[in-house]
């Protein structure tokens, strides 16, 4: 699709709002429908759209595979790390009261925020990595 004008122009207009929408879904998930799982997939969809329009080479210069690889692990680490912090503060694993014992709902807010962020990072990175895997492979025959 690299030589077609309309997808290029429309894509340039659409990709930033999609990325913005992914961030909105990520951070507004406490109040309306949404959360890390959906946000990760939407974020990855924006990268997929970019790849379809501008090609894999151009995308890999912006979204470096090395960084994606690190992010895949970082999300899970952030999730499990939040659990471990509460464990070391003397509470149960993943008991977010530990993060602010004076005001438990505030601690819960912080915990849910961190955990959802971890989910979002892992899901987005895994989806992008999977897509790069399929797109980067050439037909042998």
């Amino acid at each position: 699709m690299r030589h077609q004008g309309i997808p290029r122009v429309v894509g340039k207009w659409f990709i930033p709002p999609i990325l913005l929408f992914a961030l909105y879904v990520q951070f507004h998930g406490d109040f309306g429908p949404g959360g890390g799982f959906q946000a990760g997939v939407i974020f990855a969809a924006a990268v997929v759209l970019y790849t379809l329009i501008f090609g894999l080479q151009a995308t890999k210069q912006i979204v470096k595979p090395r960084i994606i690889e690190i992010l895949v692990a970082l999300g899970v680490l952030l999730y499990a790390g939040t659990g471990l912090v509460s464990l070391f503060l003397g509470y149960n694993f993943l008991d977010y009261t530990a993060l602010d014992p004076a005001a438990p709902p505030h601690g819960q807010h912080l915990g849910i925020f961190l955990v959802e962020l971890g989910v979002g990072i892992t899901v987005a990175a895994v989806m992008i990595a999977i897509f790069f895997g399929f797109a980067g492979r050439r037909r042998l025959r």
């Binding site: 959360g35 799982f37 990760g40 997939v41 899901v123 895994v126 989806m127 999977i130 895997g133 399929f134």
Partner: peptide, 24 residues
């Protein structure tokens, strides 16, 4: 189910990757 859907797509893509390697 919300989590199962995302896990489902991850495992589906693993299956598809295996199909690609089998095809090769």
């Amino acid at each position: 189910i919300l989590t199962a859907i995302v896990v489902g797509i991850a495992t589906l893509s693993l299956g598809l990757a295996l199909v690609v390697r089998i095809g090769e």
